[in-house]
Amino acid sequence: MTTQVKRQYVVLGGTGSIGYAFTKELLAHQEQTTLLVRNKQKAQKLFPDHPDLTLVEGDATNLELLKSLSATATHIFYGINYPYPQWEGNMERITNLVIEAATPAKATILFPGNIYNFGLTTHITETSPETPCSRKGQLRVKLEQLLKQAATAGRCHVINLRLPDFWGPNVVNEGIAPIFRGALTGKAMPWLIRNDIPHQLVYTPDAARAFYALSVAAPEEPYALYNFAGEIVPSIKAWQEQIAAVAGTRPKHKVYSKTLLNILSMFMPLMREIKEMAYLWDNTLLLHDDKLRRTLPHFAVTPMPEAIQHTLAWFRQHSAG
């Protein structure tokens, strides 16, 4: 008789874009989930009382706290993402802390990867050479190397799911949130540099479902790497028109040019960081996910109209924030 292992998840960054979606997915499956959050009140608003959810207020840089929460964990979701200007030093530090916390129980670290590792590579597979053209891309390569080295040394397991741009409920960054708020209010729906070329996006609840499905399967290797392609829209302009149509408003497009970005970068630290990544909005970069499709043959993304409706409903409900 086979004894089923009881899974226990620790989620870091659970009030952020992907961490929120993954936590919702875990609770839908009645998984034992511990959220380490810096603002418990904010977390309580996002996650009303749930019998399988434990909220702990604290900071992930507190190694003793992190190790205590992870002592019996089977999985640690690494959803922490500092603001761009704070990446240097902080992202490498937190990666090492997560690895150290995962080591005693040999927990599986679930890591949301991205495409920064590949610079201007337009078609990205799991075996594409890493050719970063930015400081942030070089740092992402280093983070993945740290995770792979730890997994290879037997300290933990790692599932690295590389993802394109996030969108969905609780995705409140300044690239996505103004689009949905603009659609609801009839105001401008902004984008950077080019809104007339195909763009790859991932609806965060879909990414969360993929992560969960991979987490419950027996790991095939210590360091498992997958791409998730999400969905390719023909252009951001067309996607915004679809969002406005569902919201019942007329789309108002607004594109911030490279020239404006260059000017703003002289005065604003965040714009300086975004300027370095401008190639992401000036080109069509595509992840290919044949490996994931072979692993999860029945997986299907949420139909776009349904995903848009759910996201608009979330922003409508949280419009005061």
Results as ranks from 00 to 15, higher is better:
N96W: 01
L97N: 02
L97H: 03
L97C: 01
L97S: 01
V98I: 14
I99N: 00
E100F: 00
E100G: 00
A102M: 02
T103N: 14
P104M: 07
A105D: 03
A105Q: 11
A105H: 06
K106I: 11
K106L: 13
K106A: 15
A107C: 02
T108M: 04
I109L: 01
L110P: 00
L110C: 05
L110K: 05
L110E: 01
L110F: 07
F111V: 11
F111P: 03
F111I: 07
G113Q: 02
G113W: 01
G113M: 03
G113P: 01
I115W: 04
Y116H: 04
Y116E: 00
Y116M: 03
F118L: 07
L120N: 15
L120V: 15
L120H: 14
T121N: 11
I124Q: 01
I124L: 01
I124K: 02
T125C: 05
S128C: 09
S128M: 10
S128K: 08
S128Q: 09
S128H: 08
P129T: 13
P129L: 13
P129W: 09
E130W: 13
E130V: 14
E130R: 15
T131F: 10
P132E: 10
C133R: 13
C133P: 03
S134L: 09
S134D: 07
R135A: 13
K136Q: 11
Q138F: 13
Q138C: 11
Q138V: 13
L139E: 08
L139A: 08
R140C: 08
R140I: 08
R140P: 04
R140D: 07
V141S: 11
V141Q: 14
V141N: 12
K142F: 14
K142L: 14
K142V: 12
E144A: 11
Q145H: 14
L147R: 12
K148C: 11
K148Q: 15
Q149Y: 09
Q149G: 10
A151S: 03
T152L: 09
A153R: 04
A153W: 04
G154P: 13
G154Q: 07
C156S: 09
H157K: 10
H157V: 04
I159L: 07
N160Y: 07
L161G: 06
R162G: 05
L163T: 03
P164W: 03
F166I: 12
W167P: 05
G168V: 06
G168L: 03
N170Y: 04
N170P: 02
V171Y: 00
N173R: 00
